[in-house]
Nucleic acid binder design. Sequence first.
DNA 1: CTGAAAGCGCTTACAG
DNA 2: CTGAAAGCGCTTACAG
Lengths: 325, 325
Amino acid sequence: MSTATVSLALRDSPLVADATRERIKEHARAIGYIYNRRAASLRTSRSGIVGVTVHDIMNPFYAEILRSIELELDRSRQTFLLCNHYDQVEKQRSFIDTLLQLGADGVIMSPAIGTPPEDIQMAEDNGLPAVLVARSVEGVDVPVFRGDDAYGIGLATNHLISLGHTRIAMIGGTDQTSTGRDRYQGYVAAMKKAGLEVLPSMRLPGPRTKQGGFEAAGAFLALKEKPTAAVCWNDLVAIGLMNGIARAGLVPGTDVSVTGYDDLEEAAIATPALTTVWNGQREVGRRAARVLLDRLNGATVDTHQQLIQPELHVRQSTGRPRERN
Amino acid sequence: MSTATVSLALRDSPLVADATRERIKEHARAIGYIYNRRAASLRTSRSGIVGVTVHDIMNPFYAEILRSIELELDRSRQTFLLCNHYDQVEKQRSFIDTLLQLGADGVIMSPAIGTPPEDIQMAEDNGLPAVLVARSVEGVDVPVFRGDDAYGIGLATNHLISLGHTRIAMIGGTDQTSTGRDRYQGYVAAMKKAGLEVLPSMRLPGPRTKQGGFEAAGAFLALKEKPTAAVCWNDLVAIGLMNGIARAGLVPGTDVSVTGYDDLEEAAIATPALTTVWNGQREVGRRAARVLLDRLNGATVDTHQQLIQPELHVRQSTGRPRERN
DNA sequence: CTGAAAGCGCTTACAG
DNA sequence: CTGAAAGCGCTTACAG
């Protein structure tokens, strides 16, 4: 029996007679045959591997995106390689290199801060199609899926304003990502539209983690403007800040209003339950994976940035302003 | 110039003259040469890929283990493929299959509940060495790294007993894993040793998540035995339970004592800061990766179970018992 | 419907 | 120190 026939039989080609196919399959099972994907990939130049790189998978925001990517890739029997780049362009670059060497079929990336468009273009030029999630990069023509951050943070800010807050701080995050700039601009725009003053001192940038929020509590409570509310960069910062506020003897949600961003699964069970902005992680992951798979199958896809419309979820961490002494 | 010379030059073989090597490397850079690892792997049967499979990477316990594995693998220029098995034996099996097909060098697994030893043996027999973390499987002879769960939960239980608690419930988790059985036994042993009664009603098994702990709060507070303390399966359950207790108007750490397990990064910033048991995630990940790399390099390694010694970290979530009405 | 042959891009003896 | 040749395990035209 020739290798060609065996190869065809194992892949259920109609070119092989039913009886022959069954005999071959039975024998393969019997001898414990293991299909060698490296060899197949060398021949076909399809590997069944997709790379995924994000800042840090320990951040539930990315974990939630990854989960929906995984679901979608599983469906198409693609495996994924994961890389946390920790915002190191060098680490991200070496990951892309690895993907190229392995003949990966594509890459989904939430690009590291400072990613030059050339890094993504290089992947594309070498046959590694890319799709971006959560952050965009100027100067490269690939599909991008992210939330509408300016609009979303506006929802949170307006919610606080409508409750009567006028001194609203913004806590956590950085202006070095597209997300960061958009969120800050959204906050500024909402404040200005309401005729409220935007004070640079009321912006406290910092790590986008619980720890970051927790540690910002001191500086927040010490602000001489005595803000009555905090718009936080994300849920992690908000939960950390609330913990820090509680440690200081104040009651978050009553003494100080706090909003989050992302609507992580744990936002609903925080104490108090967190008012936050749903950021469509599942949607972002699902659509990014789908578009990448479409590209792999030769479809030409829309490379415009796709903005997912965020939604405000009001819970217990926000209320009417209360003065502190 | 022959391909052999090029191949040797690119891998810095001393068989190639310096000048030749430099000329070749320069040219490779110039034409944007991409090393084809599939082809190399086909020839050498080393792929530079290691599989990692855990229950769910969204659980920070596994994320922390993964992080230290990643650190160790990076150092040896190995890439890792990740799989969440969600305790589905079938999903885990298909992952092992994929690894075999890709010619992966090894696999680090926290085995799914109900994993038959044959599944691991099959990997081993096909040249895919395995190392287990966090959970063990009877009947297969591979290295295992995990915390000493019985001892660790004993630390937490004894701590509560020494504060004067006598009615101590155990919240969350399952008895279907080695970890689960060991933890429950450790709790039972500590209670008995102190002459305290172990009531089946005081064991509330459940999901090992914040959500699980949060939802267990109602049942816990309604127990007719009126427990004054809860030994939780892990930090996630403990934090969820504390949130649930706070929602019910009680103050965790004052009205009810709560212990966690794992000492996740966020245990220290929970409100109140969580008394918990350090479970050596970093140590587990680091040592598992090291041993796997040693096996890849042909070393024969100790296949005895390696128990990491846990440590009690006392914080604010535990105190003297207080009666509720 | 089946078989013989070429080739994917490497590495490794082997000969010079 | 360098080159010619074989082979890793597949798939894909091509011939029969």
